[in-house]
């Protein structure tokens, strides 16, 4: 029953895949390998490893490992900085007035533009890559946190004041939880942005990672491999987003509950 339903919803996916396969086989264009060839290469490159490694090959670990490490380090470091700064700015209208023009400017700078600068300033590889990710990803986190901290319900703050909450209690028990839905929205946006910037950073300042392999395969005319990289990146984006939604659902269960009743 469920399978039938899923098929009813997803029928266009296999149809599109078959059409893609047929068209590419007929056209015989080297730039457009058929999806079966792409999948075969992806399997060879990354997913034919031993079960003890979750079927991942050494190549997969060599490509995915550094990329994911970069992505998560950049994202988490930025999250800590962005949330801390965002709470401070959101709670102080005065501070917010002072830094607002800087924030508006910072977020308007297209992050790729700074890659050559980071490369000149920092070392090729991880430092320049992390700088690229952090600079690009901080804005959605910062802006959403500021917004969340600024719009804490007045009555919640008054309740905290009446019952004599300490500053720490106010922060951890009132301000942070009520800003959490907006912070999570920012973090999710930031995660997909981090993936994009990871690719940019690896292409321009990299010696390993999926982004680097993407560039390498393109320059070496390995078109099925190149397509494999693109598909793998799409898969990664999909998985990251799904995993994040799963966590968000758990952490913000109260938020959904509260919204449904009001």
């Amino acid at each position: 029953m469920n399978v039938v339903k899923a098929l009813g919803r997803l029928w266009l996916v296999p149809v599109a895949l078959v059409a893609w396969e047929v068209v590419t086989r007929v056209a015989e264009q080297p730039f457009f390998p058929p999806p079966s060839a792409i999948l075969a290469r992806m399997y060879e490159l990354w997913f034919s490893g031993p079960p003890s490694h979750l079927l991942l090959t050494d190549g997969a670990l060599a490509d995915l490992g550094p990329s994911l490490a970069r992505l998560f380090t950049g994202w988490l470091v930025t999250a800590v900085i962005g949330i801390a700064a965002g709470i401070a700015i959101g709670c102080s209208p005065r501070l917010s007035d002072y830094v607002d023009p800087l924030i508006q400017f910072g977020r308007a700078v297209p992050p790729p533009l700074l890659v050559p600068f980071f490369l000149a300033l920092l070392k090729l590889g991880t430092p320049a890559q992390l700088a690229t990710i952090v600079f690009g990803v901080i804005w959605p986190i910062l802006l959403n946190t500021i917004d969340g901290a600024r719009t804490v319900d007045r009555q919640h703050l008054e309740t905290a004041r009446i019952f004599g909450f300490s500053a720490a209690q106010r922060l951890w028990q009132v301000i942070l939880p009520s800003a959490m839905p907006k912070i999570f929205a920012g973090l999710r946006l930031a995660l997909s942005l981090a993936l994009i910037l990871m690719v940019i950073a690896e292409i321009f300042a990299g010696t390993d990672g999926i982004g680097y392999r993407l560039l390498y395969t393109q320059r070496s005319y390995l078109y099925p491999d190149m397509w494999g990289c693109i598909v793998l990146l799409g898969l990664l984006g999909y998985l990251l987003n799904s995993a994040f939604l799963l966590v968000e659902r758990r952490v913000l269960a109260w938020h959904r509950g509260a919204r449904q009743t009001t």
């Binding site: 319900d153 009555q155 919640h156 008054e158 309740t159 009446i162 019952f163 028990q173 009132v174 939880p177 009520s178 959490m180 109260w254 938020h255 509950g257 509260a258 009001t262």
Partner: peptide, 16 residues
């Protein structure tokens, strides 16, 4: 000093 507001939904913390 304690207080009970009219708007309970905005006075209780929904995350607790």
């Amino acid at each position: 000093l304690a207080i009970v507001f009219q708007d309970y939904s905005r006075s209780l913390f929904p995350w607790m």
